[in-house]
Each structure stands twice: as structure tokens, then as C-alpha cells.
């Protein structure tokens, strides 16, 4: 799903909250590009349906849209209540936030904020699994690969190597932020598996990789 599609899905959600999501209203609410071909692509991707003048989300589309809205509004709460950032600056950050934040972090923020139900503008925040389960502990925090057990997975958040050269090697192998790796072996060397590839590394190299524990 492209960013433009995400913007439209979000606009449909907001339009739904205050009435019928007609094409005209969605178009006015959307921040991204707008074209009929884009809508057609979204229909083909199974995200929306177009009965008459209305844009209706499919189940898949609604699920994606809820996630986007949830992240956006959680971001607004975080910036408003915790970081005390308001106005245009906050708006710009939130825009990036909703598209960039990975689910593992989203959950931690929600727990940190005490499962807020409304954004600073008084709009409803779609609840996540953590809200329904009333989770109070932040289980998700950045962990180093060397602290994991065999079989556990991690989504790389950052790579902090000893040298530019090492960073280059790691990135060239495809070990970059966002990639989910699985620990396969810790002795005699670390072996991680990702994207159908296996890489062997010393413990000191593995210690450069940090990320979020990944549970599908």
C-alpha cells in the first residue's frame, strides 16, 4: 500500500465519523494526491468499494485505516501530553508518525499513555489489543541481539557499529532497520536468518544490532 492510498483510507475514516463518506468529502479531507486511477488501484487491492458516489472501506481497508488513525491519534496524545508540542510542528511530526511507527512501538506508547480513548481534539482512538487486554507493563523495549534466545525474532531498530566500515558491511548484507531477523544459533558463532538468508557473525558484531522483539 502506497502512502497516497494510506492518506485516502484515513480520509474515508474521518469522513465516516461525521456522516457519509462521499467522494467529494473524502477528497476534501485527504492530504495526498487524488486521482481516479488511484481509487481504481485501491479497489483492485481490495481496500475500498465504490457503490455510487460513496467510498466504502472493505474489512481489510477498515483494518488498515483503524491502525493508521490509531497511530496518528496516539501520536497526537504523546506530543500533546508528554512532550508538550503543539501547533504546526506537532502536525508535521504526527504525519510522519502514523506512516512510520511500527506496531511494536505503537503498543508501548499506548501502554505508556495509559490506553487513551480520545485524542487532544476529542476524537475517538480505535482500541488496540493492548487496550482490550488492559496491559500495564511495557514489554517492548529495544533489545540487543546478544540478549535474545535461540528461536526469538527481532525487528532491527538501529545498527550501532564500531566503525563506518562495519556499518557498511552490515547494511550491504541487508541487516538494516526494519528487517526482522531470527536467532538460529549462538555458538560457536551467532547465526541469524532473515529474508531467506543466513549470516554468521561474532558476538561482537551481533552486539551492534538492536531492535524490538517481534511477535507476529
Amino acid at each position: 500500500m502506497t502512502r497516497e492510498m494510506e492518506e485516502i483510507l484515513e480520509a474515508v475514516w474521518i469522513a465516516e465519523e461525521s456522516g457519509t463518506p462521499t467522494r467529494e468529502r473524502v477528497r476534501a479531507l485527504s492530504h495526498g494526491d487524488w486521482s481516479d486511477s488511484l481509487l481504481a488501484e485501491m479497489v483492485a487491492a481490495g481496500l475500498v468499494e465504490l457503490p455510487g458516489d460513496v467510498i466504502r472501506m472493505t474489512d481489510t481497508g477498515r483494518c488498515r485505516s483503524a491502525g493508521l488513525i490509531r497511530r496518528k491519534r496516539l501520536g497526537e496524545v504523546l506530543l500533546d501530553r508528554v512532550l508538550n508540542l503543539k501547533g504546526d510542528k506537532a502536525e508535521a511530526i504526527v504525519c510522519e508518525f502514523e506512516h512510520g511507527v511500527i506496531p511494536e512501538v505503537e503498543k508501548s506508547i499506548c501502554v505508556l499513555l495509559g490506553h487513551p480513548t480520545e485524542c487532544p481534539h476529542g476524537r475517538r482512538i480505535p482500541p488496540g489489543h493492548c487496550c482490550l487486554n488492559h496491559e500495564v507493563d511495557i514489554t517492548q523495549r529495544i533489545t540487543c541481539v546478544t540478549d535474545l534466545e535461540i528461536g526469538q525474532k527481532i525487528r532491527i531498530a538501529y545498527v550501532r557499529p564500531s566503525s563506518h566500515d562495519m556499518l557498511h558491511k552490515l547494511l550491504n548484507l541487508g541487516l538494516r532497520p526494519g528487517v526482522v531477523i531470527e536467532i538460529h544459533q549462538k555458538r560457536p558463532t551467532f547465526i541469524v536468518r532473515f529474508e531467506g538468508m543466513e549470516v554468521a557473525m561474532d558476538e561482537e558484531v551481533a552486539a551492534h544490532l538492536h531492535g524490538w522483539r517481534w511477535e507476529p
Binding site: 543466513e198 554468521a200 557473525m201
Partner: peptide, 9 residues
């Protein structure tokens, strides 16, 4: 230098 090696299938 530390080891960093791709293991081919």
C-alpha cells in the same frame, strides 16, 4: 577482525 559471513544455502 570479527566474523561476518553469509552462509549460502
Amino acid at each position: 577482525t570479527p566474523l561476518l559471513l553469509e552462509i549460502p544455502p
